[in-house]
Design a protein around this nucleic acid. Structure first.
Length: 661
DNA sequence: CCGCCTCGAGTTCT
DNA sequence: CTCGAGGCGG
């Protein structure tokens, strides 16, 4: 399909803006300079051809286009290659195995270094005298940053006893974390934009037009390789020793070993330790130490085969807020969500990030168009940490009306949240139905986000009972639904009628009644009718049910609309009773058990059920009251907490043994 | 009344 | 996973 010139121009501007962002802000370009130039030229040509679409905010109109005029290009004597990246032990084992095979030696010597987040730089010494310093650029050609590099104290200008001729020393220019904080404080006081991270700050400092500014930035440098020249050392570690004699600094974190296991252990331990170091690291670099062996391994087109970067998944990412929209939850709470330019963070692509509420927006000062920093550290949920650069113009205001049903929103005096109070608001109905069908509740197979959306949108479903009046023809009219899928969903609905009362209670979505409380109530009252007719006093006699929960349950069942729903559900043949609790044994009587990590061949819910069948209580969090924690592989913070509190930890095997299995 | 132990609710992506 | 808040023991 052909695009109109206007569309093509808009697309190119967006793309170039993106690559500028990668290049300037993240210092991590996707395109080579040539590829970038092609895009840029194409846009310029189109804008010349169609001047009616020329705009002042086009990247072609902005000062300081990407090709930096003030830094001359420098061709590297030997290309500056990048390293192959790996993010897990498997990849590193594979790398080690391949090296061992080519070298015909499984105990070759390796060197481990910290991979410091900075800018790589190549220093050319002629007869021991520093002549040129160049940034990496596209690997073949970089920018001449000699004037600025001369201002870095860590870099010697002269190497005593260096070999004659050309010697290219390579390393990383970086900034310590505390120096970034100080620099940003200064930037703020001078009304200048702050740097998102140490890497950007180092890159920005190196690209200063005035080297006096660079001199004021406490940049540091460590050697990590050489590019060209006669190096007499037989190994990388000896080469580094020579460099240190010349006055260079080596990587502050080092390990020399021939044991892969030792390296893997170091990686695991370093994951935590690196946070306490003065500089930012995103991983480790493993190199084959012996130069003769390095030569045997050689290079691929892109990277040396004798080295590999062993990275930790990035936990922070910088991106742009494209849009802020308001989502309405099943309870009517309106939550602002930032839609961002998709960005990779901790191994996944993030495109949405919650802003929680409007206090949070005000606190962060987020606007549409701003550059923000996202984090996903140890957590699953992306979080907006701060605004890196204010580019947006308009403040984000709370919505006057519900984005789903258009009714005016409601805000309680002393609460942060805004609510939609219309019970027939489509967004709320969708939320309630989705919760009803979800795995922990009625577990209706074939009923996902998209299906619920369409069922409500089409007016087929407004409440729980409507679900059971759906017929084959309703479903066939849904998008992508044919006989097979329709029948599966009908089967799923039929199957859900058999769920125990505890599931149904949870599915109804009574305020303050979650999975746990539902179970306790169902076990105590056995039938829905007994629960419906219970007084608040009777309800409060149930453990863990106090004034708030009992009132909420009582109110729910005395609402005429809810009662009508329940009668309709009764007519469709839903199970309203709770089966007697199965007791297999009492070996775990009086114990409180917490499960963590992924068990093989069993979900956590199943494991918890098993423990309860043997008389245990189960919980989701570790405390001093926990009898023991069952930790499977990939256990996280709960295991850590158990260690801190001195709670006993069992492997899944030990746990099964306890049950006599 | 305070502090600890839990639970509920919202949230993202594969 | 985290935050906020209900339940409850001291």
């Amino acid at each position: 399909m052909a695009f109109s010139p206007a569309e093509e121009i808009a697309r190119l501007r967006k793309e170039i803006d993106f690559h500028n962002h990668r290049y300037y802000d993240l210092d991590d370009p996707v395109l080579s300079d040539t590829q970038y130039d092609q895009l840029y030229q194409k846009l310029k040509e189109l804008e010349a051809q169609y001047p009616q679409y020329a705009q002042t905010d086009s990247p072609t109109q902005k000062i300081g286009g990407r090709a930096s005029a003030s830094f001359a290009p420098v061709r590297h004597a030997a290309p500056m290659m990048s390293l192959d990246n790996s993010y897990n032990e498997e990849d590193v084992r594979a790398w080690h195995e391949r090296c061992a095979k080519i070298l015909n030696d499984s105990s070759f010597d390796m060197v481990l270094e910290a991979k410091i987040d900075g800018v790589s730089c190549s220093l050319s010494y002629t007869d021991g005298q520093l002549t040129t310093a160049a940034s990496r650029g596209d690997g073949k050609t970089g920018e001449d940053v000699t004037a600025n590099v001369l201002a870095i104290k860590d870099i010697p200008h002269h190497l005593d006893g260096a070999p004659k001729g050309l010697l290219e020393i390579r390393g990383e220019i970086y900034l310590d974390k505390k120096d970034l904080a100080a620099l940003n404080a200064k930037q703020t006081s001078q009304n200048q934009p702050v740097f998102a991270n140490t890497r950007n700050a180092a890159a920005g400092s190196l690209r200063q037009k005035d080297s006096a500014v660079t001199a004021q930035r406490p940049l540091k440098f460590f050697v990590h390789s050489f590019g060209f020249g006669e190096v007499t050392a037989p190994s990388f570690s000896r080469f580094i020793q020579n460099c240190v004699c010349w006055g260079f600094t080596a990587s502050p974190v080092r390990l020399q070993t021939s044991s892969l296991e030792e390296i893997l252990k170091f990686y695991r331990d370093f994951a935590e330790q690196r946070r306490n170091l003065p500089f930012d690291t995103d991983g480790l670099v493993i190199k084959v130490n012996n130069f003769a062996q390095q030569r045997i391994l050689g290079n691929t087109a892109k990277s040396p085969r004798w080295a590999i970067a062993f990275k930790y998944p990035a936990e922070q990412a910088t991106t742009t807020v494209n849009h802020i929209l308001f989502s309405v939850g099943r309870s009517g709470v309106i939550t602002p969500v930032a839609q961002v330019e998709p960005v990779s963070c901790a191994g996944v692509i993030i495109s949405n990030a919650t802003l929680h509420n409007f206090d949070e927006i005000r606190r962060l000062g987020v606007r549409v168009g701003d550059k923000i920093i996202l984090e996903r550290a140890g957590e699953v949920i992306p979080k907006v940490i701060k605004v890196a650069e204010h580019l947006g113009k308009e403040d984000v205001l709370p919505p006057q009306t519900c984005p789903s049903c258009g009714r005016p929103v409601y805000k309680a005096e002393d609460e942060v949240g805004y609510y939609c109070v219309n019970p027939s608001c489509p967004a709320q109905i969708k939320g309630r139905i989705l919760h009803y069908a979800s795995r922990g509740a009625m577990d209706i197979e074939g009923m996902g986000d998209a299906v619920v959306d369409e069922l409500v949108e089409r007016g087929f479903v407004n409440n729980f009972a409507d679900l059971y009046n759906l017929n084959f023809f309703h479903l066939l009219s849904l998008e992508n639904f044919k006989e097979k899928k329709s029948q599966n969903l009908l089967d799923g609905l039929e199957e859900s009628k058999k769920r125990p009362l505890s599931r149904l209670l949870f599915a109804l979505g009574i305020a303050f009644v979650g999975a746990k409380t539902s179970e306790v109530l169902a076990d105590r009252f056995h039938t829905l009718d007994d629960l419906m007719n219970a007084s608040t006093e009777t309800l409060q006699s149930v453990p863990d049910v106090g004034a708030v929960v009992s009132q909420s349950v009582y109110d729910f069942f005395h609402d005429p609309a809810a009662r009508e729903q329940i009668e309709l559900l009764r007519q469709t043949g839903l199970n309203f009773t709770q089966p007697e609790k199965q007791i297999s044994s009492r070996v775990l009587e009086g114990k409180t058990v917490v499960f963590t990590g992924e068990m093989e061949g069993m979900t956590r819910t199943q494991a918890e059920q098993l423990a309860r069948e043997h008389g245990a209580k189960t919980s989701g969090s570790v405390s001093a009251k926990t009898s023991f924690v069952v930790a499977a592989k990939a256990a996280g913070s709960k295991l850590k907490k158990a260690n801190e509190l001195g709670v006993k930890i069992l492997t899944p095997e030990e746990f099964f043994h306890l049950l006599g299995r």
